[in-house]
């Protein structure tokens, strides 16, 4: 079996566990997300604990991973972005746009995709628009890149 097979298998399991985690956490209910963001109204801070739990687990294993020569199924750690402070203004603007969209619909990318099997029309419309946004931005980047060469 090739390493692609094993890497894809791990990805499948990870994606499934992620979906269950989102379900347990309450992130699949847009009203909860809205409540978390409604700091000037009836603020529901519970979702903050999703980040607390996930960051705690990930930070501990990140320390362990730093002692590993390489990931189990890869030859090195080169696919991990280097932590750093470089964050240009255009990327900051991107974060603003994302936040506004997140507040408007109560969905970020993970919960939107995991909620697709609910077949809720609102979820389907939002997710298709989001995927179009992904692709539209990729096309724009490619156009910019081609112009530069």
């Amino acid at each position: 079996m090739s390493s692609t097979f094993y890497r894809s298998f791990v990805a499948l399991i990870s994606g499934g566990i992620f979906a269950v985690g989102l379900g347990v956490s309450g992130m699949l209910n847009p009203a909860n997300v809205r409540g978390f963001l409604d700091i000037l109204g009836e603020w529901k801070p519970a979702l903050m604990f999703v980040m607390v739990g996930a960051i705690a687990v990930y930070a501990i294993s990140n320390l362990l991973a730093q002692r590993m020569q390489k990931p189990v199924l890869e030859k090195d750690w080169s696919n991990l972005p280097r932590p750093g402070f470089d964050f240009p203004n255009v990327a900051k603007l991107g974060a603003v746009l994302f936040g506004v969209g997140w507040g408007m619909a109560g969905f970020c990318p993970g919960p939107a995709i995991v909620s697709l099997p609910s077949l809720n029309p609102s979820v389907i419309i939002f997710t298709i628009a989001m995927l179009a946004g992904f692709y539209g931005f990729a096309l724009y980047e490619r156009m910019k890149h081609n112009k530069a060469h």
Binding site: A11, F49, G53, V57, L80
Partner: peptide, 20 residues
């Protein structure tokens, strides 16, 4: 929310430890 976060953290750990 905390339990869900722990599970989400586990999913992220798998992808990092195995696939980098």
């Amino acid at each position: 929310a905390l339990y869900g976060g722990l599970i989400i953290g586990l999913a992220a750990v798998l992808l990092m430890i195995f696939n980098g």
